[in-house]
């Protein structure tokens, strides 16, 4: 079912909902290099990654450990900066921003979902979801309304006053997703969101992400090891040895490929 769209190097993923092909993509990486350490212990995690991601796409990032996918995700999440090359977000060169400016960019445009959920313990679902709004400076009423709306979207509005310890893993991940989307970000970055969940919960989470991608037009970038989960994405980017190896387009996302 998957279509191989060409070898390594420059690749453009597109979908019908995205703007015309000649418009700048939402995210553009050009010859991105990331080097850790120096001298003899120097290690090049990214060796010149080129990648374009259109707004509204659902992208799965796959690859073995050490292939550079996590480093790429950190750079795309503005948590890390490239050692070389260019990262354009909405046409803006992110590598020129300082630490606090990148924090503000994350606050406004990005939402994060982690493998380990990373909710604040002893804190109700509502207060967890509220957190990004607190940093954004929303008033109490607005915070509450937006947070309840986000919890409703993930189907947990009745659980708003429960702490993470009182919620199942799947529910915790839903709270984390509510927290990520409460600010209505452009991009949702999910780092192995189903890594800690059983297959049934995993499918539920993937369906939720797919739904958010379609109805709220949020661009989803997801790292995963599991082909079953990657099958929910419209675009699958494979990393190998610090480079993009290939990009697949999936015309029937949500259907598990029979054989790979």
């Amino acid at each position: 079912m998957a279509v191989v769209s060409g070898g390594a190097g420059r690749a453009v993923a597109s979908n019908p909902a995205a703007p015309p092909a000649d418009a700048a993509p939402l995210i553009r990486l050009r010859d991105v290099i990331k080097t850790y350490g120096s001298g003899a212990t120097q290690f090049q995690a990214l060796k010149g990654v080129d990648l374009d991601i259109d707004g509204g796409d659902f992208v799965a990032v796959m690859g073995p450990s050490g292939s550079g996918k996590s480093t790429t995700m950190n750079i795309l999440g503005c948590l890390d900066v490239p050692s070389g090359g260019e990262f354009l977000f909405r046409g803006f060169p992110v590598q020129t921003l300082d630490r606090d400016q990148r924090a503000l960019l994350r606050r406004k445009y990005l939402g994060f979902v982690f493998q380990g959920f990373n909710l604040l313990s002893r804190t109700s679902a509502l207060e967890n979801v509220e957190l990004p709004l607190l940093y954004r400076g929303d008033e109490k009423k607005a915070r509450r309304d937006l947070s309840m709306a986000a919890l409703e979207k993930v189907g947990l509005d009745r659980w708003w006053d429960h702490t993470p310890a009182e919620l199942s893993g799947g529910q915790q991940q839903r709270v984390a997703i509510a927290r990520a989307i409460v600010t209505q970000p452009d991009v949702l970055l999910a780092d192995e969101p189903t890594g800690n969940l059983d297959s049934e919960r995993s499918v539920e989470i993937m369906e939720l992400l797919t739904d958010l991608n379609r109805t709220s037009n949020i661009t989803v970038l997801m790292v995963t090891h599991e082909p079953d989960m990657a099958a929910f994405a419209r675009t699958v980017v494979h990393f190998k040895d610090g480079l993009v190896e290939r990009i697949e387009r999936n015309h029937r996302p949500g259907v598990v490929p029979e054989n790979d």
Partner: peptide, 12 residues
């Protein structure tokens, strides 16, 4: 880490 990731600046 969570606070920084969701957009808290260092000063906050």
């Amino acid at each position: 880490g969570i606070r920084l990731a969701i957009g808290a600046v260092a000063r906050e």
